[in-house]
Simulated assay, not measured.
Amino acid sequence: MADYDIELMIKVAELYYLDDVPQREIAQKLNLSRPKVSRLLKAAKEHNLIDIKINYPEPARSELEKAFESNFGLKEAVIVSNVNENHFRTFAQVTATAAKYLRRMVKERDSIGVAWGRTLRAVVDSIGITERKNVRAVQIIGSLGQSSESANEIVRKMAESFGGNSFILPAPAIVDSPEIKDAIIKDNTIQDILNMARSVNIALVGIGNIDKNSSFFNTGYLKQKDLEALKQEKAVGDICAHFFDIEGRLCTDIDRRVIAISTEDLKKIPRVIGVATGKEKVKSILGALKSGILDVLITDEKTAKSIIDLSKP
C-alpha cells in the first residue's frame, strides 16, 4: 500500500464523506488526479481513519482550515499546529510544511512564479532535490541586490529543486521614480520575463509587514519618507512590493515605482500560495487575504486564530 500523507488523506475524506464533494471536484480543488483521490480514500479506510465518521486527530486545526477557506474564499488553508511558543521552531515548521505542500502540488512542466524574502528562502531550502519535473521557475519581482533572500537566488534554488530552468528578472524591485520604472520595463528582456511571470500557473509569495526592520528598509530600497507615506495610506503589508491596507486595498504611492507582476495579474494566476507566520504579520496576512490575491495560505494555528479574532466585526 502506498505511504500517503495522513493530513492529505483526512482532507480528501472530509470533502468526500462530510461535504459531499464529488471526486472529480476534489481532484480539481487539490490539484490531484481523480484516480489518486480514489486511492487516498481507500488508503484512509485502510488506516482506520474512516468508520461511521472521520476520526480527526486534530479537530480544532481541521475546523480552523475550513473556517479560513470559507471566510476568505481560499482554495486551501494549511495551518500548522503550534507545539510550543518557540517562534523559531514555528517558523521552521511552517516553512517545512510549505515545502511539503509544493512537493505535492508541483507537476511535470509547471511554471512557478517566485517572489523573495527570508520565509521563501527557508521554504526552498526545505524542498531539497525532488524528482525532476522540468519546471520553469520565473522571478516575478525585481531583486534586492545579492542577498541570499533575494528573488534571483530563490528562483535559482527552486529550479534546482524540481529540475528545470530559472528565468531572472534583471531589475531592482523598487526604483526612485515612475519615470525610471517606465524606462526599465520598456527593455525587451524585462518585458519577456514579465510576460513569463503572467503565464505561470503557480506563484509562491511571502507577506511582508510595515516596519523599519523589513527587508525593503534594511536594504535601502525604501526610505523614511516612504515609510511615512505608507503610514498615511494605512498600509499594513505587501505582496511583491504591492502594499495594501487591512481591507486589502492597494496603496498607490509606492506602487508606481515597483518592478514586478501587477496585483491584477497575480489574481489571474490559478494558484497563488502565501506563506507567513508570527504575531507581527497578523494584520499583514488579514490584508493579504482581503486583497483577493491569495488562493492558498500556509501559516500556524496561533497566527490563524489571531487573524480570525481580528477579522471579527
Rank of each mutant, 00 (worst) to 15 (best):
K157H: 11
K157I: 13
M158A: 11
A159M: 08
A159K: 10
A159T: 08
E160P: 02
E160G: 11
S161K: 06
S161T: 06
F162Y: 01
G163W: 02
G163A: 07
G163R: 05
G163H: 06
G163N: 07
G164T: 05
N165M: 15
N165H: 12
N165A: 14
S166D: 15
S166H: 15
S166Q: 08
S166G: 10
F167Y: 15
I168T: 13
I168G: 07
I168Q: 06
I168C: 08
L169Y: 03
L169C: 04
L169Q: 05
L169M: 09
A171C: 03
A171N: 00
P172S: 10
A173D: 08
A173R: 02
A173V: 05
A173Y: 09
I174T: 03
I174Y: 07
V175E: 01
V175Y: 00
D176R: 12
D176V: 11
D176N: 15
P178T: 12
E179L: 09
E179A: 09
E179C: 03
K181P: 04
K181I: 05
K181G: 03
D182S: 13
I184G: 03
I184R: 03
I184E: 06
I185V: 14
K186I: 01
N188E: 15
N188G: 08
T189V: 14
T189H: 11
I190D: 01
Q191V: 06
D192A: 12
I193C: 02
I193G: 00
I193Q: 00
L194V: 00
L194F: 07
M196A: 01
M196Y: 12
M196L: 12
A197M: 01
A197E: 05
A197K: 04
R198A: 15
R198P: 00
S199K: 13
V200C: 06
N201L: 02
I202P: 03
A203H: 02
A203K: 06
L204K: 05
V205R: 00
V205L: 01
G206D: 08
I207Q: 07
I207H: 05
I207M: 09
N209Y: 13
N209W: 10
N209I: 09
N209A: 13
I210V: 15
D211E: 06
D211A: 04
K212I: 13
N213E: 15
N213A: 13
N213C: 04
S214I: 07
S215D: 10
F216C: 09
F216N: 13
F217V: 11
N218Q: 15
T219R: 15
G220F: 04
Y221W: 10
Y221H: 12
L222T: 04
K223M: 09
K223I: 05
K225Y: 12
K225C: 09
K225W: 08
K225V: 12
D226Y: 02
D226M: 06
D226C: 07
L227G: 01
E228V: 10
E228A: 12
